[in-house]
């Protein structure tokens, strides 16, 4: 290879690399600035909105599952757990889900109601996963017209 030609290639590579690293530096700087002053990249900031603190970026932690239950939320550990935690718990407690029972149609109805009145977003492809999860693990049981008294804790009644 000719010396001049080689010099040219080195020069060109140098320019390209400089531009590349320069750009990286700008992006990194921007991200750091964004972390310190979040309004920098957010065009509309509503200061009245109160954000829930999040200390653990992992949604489903390695040690969160015990006896088939996701302990922090009480949800059954099964396919769809992560989508349910991510989409259901930003607005309300997991307890509002786990204490309810409904058919597939019922759960879809609840999702539609939340979308119409409670600002729930379009769940996209996650909707099928979420509905499958809920209809499978939180399905209704036939309780009849009146259930038996259950979970009675017997005790001696002394004082009268």
């Amino acid at each position: 290879m000719h010396y001049e030609e080689f010099k040219k290639i080195v020069k060109r590579t140098y320019v390209v690399l400089s531009l590349f690293f320069g750009l990286l530096l700008i992006i990194a700087g921007g991200l750091v600035y964004e972390m310190l002053y979040p309004s920098f990249l957010i065009t509309e900031t509503d200061q009245d909105i109160v954000y829930e603190p999040i200390e653990n970026l992992e949604v489903i932690g390695k040690n969160d599952i015990k006896n088939g239950i996701h302990e922090p939320t009480g949800f059954v550990d099964a396919n769809g757990l992560e989508q349910v935690v991510i989409n259901c718990t930003p607005c309300h407690s997991a307890k509002l889900v786990t204490q309810n029972r409904a058919t597939r149609e019922g759960w879809i109805g609840i999702i539609r109601w939340m979308q119409e009145t409670q600002n729930l977003w379009d769940l996209g492809a996650n909707e099928a996963v979420i509905v499958d999860y809920l209809a499978t693990h939180y399905a209704p049981e036939n309780k009849g017209r009146r259930e038996l008294l259950n979970n009675i804790e017997w005790y001696d009644l002394k004082d009268k």
Partner: peptide, 14 residues
Amino acid sequence: FSSTLPENYIPLVK
């Protein structure tokens, strides 16, 4: 999973 999740909505895990 979060592609359809609006900004600033954080799952409640605590």
